[in-house]
Computed example of a mutant assay.
Amino acid sequence: MTSPSDSIVKPPRKLTDILKRLFVKLGILPFLLAIAVVTFSLMSDNFLTGKNLMNVLRQSVYLTIVSMGQMLALLTGGFDLSVGTTLAVTSVVGALTMATVYAAMPEAVWLAIIIGCFAGVAAGTLIGVCNGVGVAFFGVSPFMMSLGMTSVGFGVALFLTGGVPVYGMPQAFGDIFGFGTLFGIPTPIYATVLLGILLYVFLYRTPFGRHFYAVGGNVKAAALSGINTRATLFWTYVLCAGLTAVAGMLLTARLDTGEANIGSAMPLQSIAACVIAGVSLRGGVGRLESVILGALFIGLVENGMNLARIESYLQTVVLGSLLILAVIADQIRLRYVASLKD
C-alpha cells in the first residue's frame, strides 16, 4: 500500500523528470526564452506588439549572420574572436571603395555598390584566410590566432580612416540594403534567411558539411577516416569570416557610414548566442536552427532591456551573466546525458 506522502511526492518527481528530459533534449534556450518573454511583457506593454517584434528581427539579423559563422568555428572545437575586427575592416574597406568609385563615376551607382560590396567582403574574408592558415597549417591555437588578428584588423581599420567615419556612399545603398523593405519586411531579413538556407543545406546535405562535426567530435578519428582535417579547419575560418563580412556590409548600409569601431561586442554576443543555443564548447555538437533562435534571443533580451530602460552598462552585465549561465548549463546537460546513457 502507498502512503499519502507518496502521492504527494510523485507528481513533483514526474514534473522534475519531464523538465530534465526537456533540458537534455532542447537545452537551456527554451527556458530562458520563456522567462524573457514573460518578464519583459510584464515590464513593458509594447514588448509583444507586432511592430516591436519586427524591430527585434531587423536588429538581430547582423548578430544572426555572425553567429552562424561563429557556430562553424565552435563546431570544430575552436572559436573566432576576430569577428568584430572582420566587421570593422569590411565596413571601412567597403565604404572607402564604394565612395571612391561613386565619386569618380556618379552616374554608375550600381557599379559603385557592387565593387564596394565585393571589396568589403573580400577584405573581411582575408582575415578568415589568415586565421585558417594559422590554425590549420601552423597549429596556432584559435584563441591566440584570432586574438592577434583582432589587434591587426582594428589597427588597419583605424589607419585607413584615422578614426573618422567614412561618408560618400551612394544613397541607394543605404535605402535598399539598410532601410529598404519588401512586402513590409526589411531587406536584411531576406538576406539572413537566404544565408541560413544555404548554410543549412551545406551543413546537413553535403558530405563536406558533416566534416565540421566529425573534426570537432574527434579530430584524430576524423583524420583516420579519410577526412582532410586541415582543409576543414581552414575553410571553417574562411566561411566564418565570409559570413561576418556580409553582415558587415549590411550593417554599413544601416549606419550609412564606414566605421572602424563597430563590432567590439560581437565576439561575446556571437559566442553567447551559440552557447545558449546548445553549441558545445568542446566541439562537434550544435544545430543551426537553434543558433538562429539563440541570436534572436539575445536581440530580444537587448530590446526588452531597452524598453525597460535598463542602463547600457548593466546590459553588458546581463549578457555576460547569460553566457556564464549557458556554459554552466551545458556542463550540467552533459552530465545528465551521461547519466541517462548509464
Rank of each mutant, 00 (worst) to 15 (best):
S3H: 14
P4L: 01
D6K: 14
I8N: 00
K10V: 01
K14E: 14
L15S: 03
L15I: 09
R21P: 02
V24W: 01
F31S: 01
V37W: 05
M43R: 13
S44C: 08
S44T: 13
K51L: 13
L53K: 02
L53S: 02
L53N: 01
N55V: 01
V56P: 15
S60V: 08
I65P: 00
L72N: 06
L72I: 04
L74F: 01
G77F: 04
G78K: 05
V83L: 03
V83M: 04
T85I: 13
T90L: 02
V93K: 08
G94S: 11
L96D: 06
T100C: 07
Y102M: 11
E107L: 05
A112V: 06
I115S: 11
A119E: 07
G120I: 09
A123K: 07
I127E: 00
I127H: 06
V129S: 03
V133H: 08
V135W: 03
V135G: 06
V135C: 05
F137P: 13
V140F: 12
P142V: 11
M149A: 11
V152L: 15
G153R: 12
A157Q: 05
A157M: 10
G162Q: 05
V164H: 15
P165S: 11
P165A: 10
P165M: 09
G168D: 13
I176G: 06
P186W: 03
P188Y: 06
Y190H: 02
Y190V: 01
A191D: 11
A191Q: 11
T192P: 01
T192H: 05
L199D: 05
L199N: 04
F202T: 02
F202P: 00
L203R: 05
P207D: 10
H211R: 01
A214V: 12
V219D: 04
A221W: 04
A221N: 09
L224C: 03
R230S: 09
T232R: 00
W235E: 06
A241H: 00
L243H: 05
T244S: 09
A245I: 09
V246T: 08
A247D: 11
L250R: 12
T252S: 09
A253R: 00
D256Q: 15
D256S: 13
D256A: 14
M266K: 03
P267W: 07
L268P: 07
I271E: 03
A272Q: 02
A273E: 01
V275S: 03
V279R: 06
V279C: 02
E289I: 15
V291N: 02
L293E: 08
A295Q: 07
L296Y: 06
L296M: 14
I298Y: 00
L300T: 13
E302G: 12
E302I: 15
M305W: 07
E311I: 11
L314S: 12
Q315R: 11
L323M: 10
L325Q: 10
A326L: 12
A329Y: 07
R333Q: 14
L334P: 00
A338H: 14
S339Q: 15
L340F: 13
